[in-house]
Design a protein around this nucleic acid. Sequence first.
DNA 1: TGTACATCAGTGAACGCGCGTTCACTGATGTAC
DNA 2: TGTACATCAGTGAACGCGCGTTCACTGATGTAC
Lengths: 215, 215
Amino acid sequence: MTVTNRNTPTLRSTYRHGDLRRALLEAGIDLARQGGPDAVVLREATRRAGVAPNAAYRHFANRDDLLAAVRTAALAAVAEAMEAELAQVPTTGTPTAQAHAKVRAVGAGYLRFAHAETGLFRTAFGGRFTVQHDPDPAMGGATGLNPFQHLSAALDDLVTAGALPPARRPGAEYLAWSTVHGMALLSIDGPLRGTPQQMLDGLGQRLLDMVERGL
Amino acid sequence: MTVTNRNTPTLRSTYRHGDLRRALLEAGIDLARQGGPDAVVLREATRRAGVAPNAAYRHFANRDDLLAAVRTAALAAVAEAMEAELAQVPTTGTPTAQAHAKVRAVGAGYLRFAHAETGLFRTAFGGRFTVQHDPDPAMGGATGLNPFQHLSAALDDLVTAGALPPARRPGAEYLAWSTVHGMALLSIDGPLRGTPQQMLDGLGQRLLDMVERGL
DNA sequence: TGTACATCAGTGAACGCGCGTTCACTGATGTAC
DNA sequence: TGTACATCAGTGAACGCGCGTTCACTGATGTAC
């Protein structure tokens, strides 16, 4: 692992702390998990890492830089939740049925993540955010696809299976995403807050029915 | 207007400032309009009203109390946007057509408001919020209906007109609201940010098509 | 109508808070000879 | 292998900031007689 090369800048294999960057990032993720993006406080992260406040500046340009790293991790976690749902889609059944199931899996993963990991969800999608259109290993699970790309892929499958007219494909991800994003937020901050998971799941399924019929 | 009664606490008709409560509230609304809920800063509101910071405590219990008043005003503004759209629904046409048009009007009002008054929208629906189920003059326009109640009424009309099976009515407001809420947020904070109003309107119409078909 | 009094809206000054960030530093580690 | 040196991760102390909020006050206004 430790390859020192005369011609390239020397990379130290260890730091005094061990791996302070990772420790700070993980503290940040924990803070986000509990309190959303505003809870990602640089000083608190250093406190949890057992280090002086300014030590963070060796690893992150500033507080926003740390927050951005936390957000990337949160996006990856959303992608993993989707992948967990996708993995449960049976490979039996018609291509059409499978394609529909995949779209539902992506949506259900999103909704369940929002409910189970509220703080991380709000960190990923709570403030301003954009989506990348190219796979990025940092943002996905095994596949390297981010949440948006999982949705796109599922919709493409729907077209391939003949379950969605190609003419309706453009922009469809924004319609589907809107739907599921809205319910996620209503269930976190809005009037659906406090609704038991079971009812939320039922409502989520009705929502996905609506999208299937409506797209 | 000034009725002084021996048996009830005396109500002064004027204050030194004139009406500091209103001045602070309006400053707060202005701050929210420009920067969302976090921008509603008590000290800044007093600055704009030309008054010492602590003067606010004569009229609001604390900063949260001021924010709550601003939020109520923001909700009323959303309701008014909906009412403006509803007023344009032609009274000709079948009851079914009218009912559909009303649902669309409510949705379009919501989406347009989110785009035109981003800060107020985020103040109304950005953080934790609940909806009242009883009309409250403070929250509505002429009707006193809040945004949620407008949506409910429109869906009821859809059932009455026979365009929505009664069995599907319960919970339908959450499905419809989710859809439109999600797009509103994607167009404010998400990947739809910066999309021109015209395209957003088109996407919004497709979204409402989807809801109509899917409900 | 005039005067003494009570009310209470707004003042002026100060508080503690926790934050992000900068500075000059120190001393453990890796490197060159 | 040993020694002198350079690097740079983490330290310690301090900063200015703007915030919400509390305190004792003052003086314009309305009220009672």
